[in-house]
């Protein structure tokens, strides 16, 4: 696992409950809604957060995407994105 990333494979992650995450048809994209703000996610980011929204272990999420795309190289990118999402407060570790 990438040493620069604070998340561990055993961490259970979820969307912070103060954010609303969902598919928005007029935008044809996943969106995150929060007080006075919204973010439209690109397809990749949206696909990852859609899995996080199910509440999931980081390791399981990584394994599933690696298997789905048959590409072990995407692990670091996904972790970097999850960590950035955690920093922004979109995603939190479930305790």
């Amino acid at each position: 696992m990438n040493n620069n990333v604070g998340l561990q494979r055993t961490d259970i992650v979820e969307i912070d409950p103060t954010f609303l995450f969902r598919w928005e048809e007029p935008q044809r994209a996943y969106v995150l809604l929060y007080p006075e703000g919204l973010v439209k996610l690109n397809s990749t980011a949206g696909e990852i957060l859609a899995v996080v929204a199910q509440t999931v272990a980081v390791g399981d999420l990584l394994d599933n995407f690696i298997a789905k795309y048959n590409n072990p190289d995407i692990e670091d990118d996904i972790l970097t994105f999850l960590e950035a999402s955690n920093e922004r407060g979109w995603v939190r570790i479930k305790r």
Partner: peptide, 24 residues
């Protein structure tokens, strides 16, 4: 998920510009 290999893409979620929609 072709874009997943590109960090710049996955880590640059689109900021909403509205695309002509009254989002607010």
């Amino acid at each position: 998920m072709s874009a997943a290999g590109s960090e710049s893409s996955v880590n640059a979620p689109v900021k909403v510009d509205g695309e002509g929609l009254p989002l607010w």
